[in-house]
């Protein structure tokens, strides 16, 4: 946690407030349909599986796998200076929803598709916590 956090600060949309509030409490929360049981991400006001309005926020197990990933070798944002190469992955949670995050705690050359990972929480600033993933 620091005041000189140099990476991009997300601008939260109104529908994603519960996700960010959950992250602050070190809980990964996503949306689940009360009608068909489908889980999805990013947040919206309708089930992306069946179109129902009956949506609920639920806690994810935080376990999943790397559906795909890329390794940034080029610096696109000054906040990442000194951290390239770094991995950005699409994480497929056990519940089925996919989300973007970083895969950390493993040499970049060892990251593989379908590799099992689990969430951990990085307190970036006093008001921002980011869910990130590490190998199980």
């Amino acid at each position: 946690m620091s005041d000189d956090y140099a990476k991009a600060i997300p601008v939260t949309g109104p529908e994603s407030v519960p996700y960010w509030e959950g992250a602050k409490k070190h809980q990964l929360v996503i949306q689940k349909c009360g009608k068909c049981g489908h889980h999805w991400f990013p947040p919206s006001t309708v089930c992306t599986g069946c179109g129902s309005r009956d949506i609920n926020w639920v806690r994810s197990s935080g376990k999943g796998k790397v559906f795909s990933f890329v390794v940034f070798h080029r610096l696109y944002h000054k906040g990442w200076d000194g951290e390239v190469p770094y991995v950005v992955g699409i994480i497929e949670l056990e519940e089925g929803a996919r989300m973007l995050s970083n895969v950390i705690g493993i040499p970049v050359e060892d990251v593989k598709c379908d590799m099992p990972v689990e969430v951990f929480f990085e307190d970036a600033t006093d008001t921002l916590t980011l869910p990130k993933f590490k190998p199980v």
Binding site: S68, V70, F72, N102, C113, L128, K132
Partner: peptide, 26 residues
């Protein structure tokens, strides 16, 4: 995108297409 991307250092069309390439290779 203002959230679910830039905070993880995710920038540019190259990364999105790179995901597809990586999965195809896999």
């Amino acid at each position: 995108g203002m959230e679910f991307g830039p905070e993880f250092g995710y920038y540019g069309a190259i990364a999105a297409h790179g995901f597809g390439a990586q999965r195809h290779m896999h």
